[in-house]
Design a protein around this nucleic acid. Sequence first.
DNA 1: GTATATTTGTGTCAATATTACACAAACAAA
DNA 2: TTTGTTTGTGTAATATTGACACAAATATAC
Lengths: 230, 230
Amino acid sequence: MALQQDIKVAVDAVIFGYESKGNLSVLLIKRGIEPFKDAWAMPGGLVLERESLEAAVKRELKEETGVRIDYLEQLYTFGKPNRDPRNRVISVSYFGLVRPNHFKIKGDTDAVDAKWFPVNDLPKLAFDHKKIFQMAAQRLKGKLMYQPIGFDLLSPEFPFSDLEHLYTTILGRDIDRRNFRKKIKSFGFVEETDKLHQEGSGRPAKLFKFNKQKYDTLVDDGFHFDIKFV
Amino acid sequence: MALQQDIKVAVDAVIFGYESKGNLSVLLIKRGIEPFKDAWAMPGGLVLERESLEAAVKRELKEETGVRIDYLEQLYTFGKPNRDPRNRVISVSYFGLVRPNHFKIKGDTDAVDAKWFPVNDLPKLAFDHKKIFQMAAQRLKGKLMYQPIGFDLLSPEFPFSDLEHLYTTILGRDIDRRNFRKKIKSFGFVEETDKLHQEGSGRPAKLFKFNKQKYDTLVDDGFHFDIKFV
DNA sequence: GTATATTTGTGTCAATATTACACAAACAAA
DNA sequence: TTTGTTTGTGTAATATTGACACAAATATAC
């Protein structure tokens, strides 16, 4: 009944980078071949025959950019017939969040060129990757509001202002420092240490740490993390 | 570098059915061929060469069950290498919600057999369809809490108890009638008519209607529907 | 060493939202 | 006319949110 199917399956990764005191950025690669040769695109590529989707996206990411990431979340599957001008290719997209300076990015010396771009200054993107990026950015913001993603991006012991900066950067807006602290503290999975941290001028900051074990326990007990601060 | 890829792309639909006074059910088909011959499965099948994913799932649904649905939402893409014991098949799954008695389901007279099953009494399912179903059920509940899905499932003018029943059925738990009414009314997109409706014994109920236009306006204005009642 | 700039840390009050809870009204059926 | 069933409604206690300002601790500039 159905014609013999010849559809390729690809994966793409929207990798956000966040650095203390830094901006939010996205990892892109410069395409070496047509179509869209020399345009920037999300890292990704075809899935191998006996490889899971997640394995594929991690592999491509490693090969093309040098970034190794453990946690990726599936975003959406894009499948319009003409999203690739040549063949029919559907793309299962993923997104993740890492610390850029944890990795040495493959650069001009390699066959491929990979770079971090600030999210509010992206080049023109290949295929439908602009749409993929937009969806990922929206999901990242949404996720931040009900899950404590991003604690891995901070130092094991971090001043509260780092966490605050992470949130303002990803959400792209200011938040009330006092209310934010109050809210986060009320969850009970950040713990105060007795260490202090000094950087530049200003009063030294207490260091805090994220108690993942406690967080997991809370989640198991059906706790529902939920931020709606201004 | 990469081997020639031969992966099939399929779509699957988790179609929930809700009827006034009814239970929540799911539409399944009985497989006519191996693997999993005679087992029940979600409707679905291979995507055609020049067909969008959404068109494919609607077409398969129509062909296999007779159900035509306008709104489907993408759920997740399942891609473990061995989810199909024969070939490599990845499945892009969708879910939707309809009124069962709006359709004549294809039955034993046809090549395929399709049936509604109550969600808490499902047969053993083919492939990884149990997992697909579970994910869909969870998403449906979640969605109900922040979007007024389901108003299409009610009559154009409905007693409030119908809406309440829809919610208790999908959520699988009781809710406080007074608080529910208060909350829904506060949103301002259900309007009271001056008609009454009588069914069986008991006080006649006022009829209400859903003002979709008003709802859309609110959404455009950035309104965020959000239910957390008990 | 004094003044200035910078960053951290903290509490209260008003407004709003949530939750728990019970009884009268309107009808059908017995 | 009594009984059973369903609809319709308000209030008070509690919890959450949101707005808001100033002192403490340090580095830096003079």
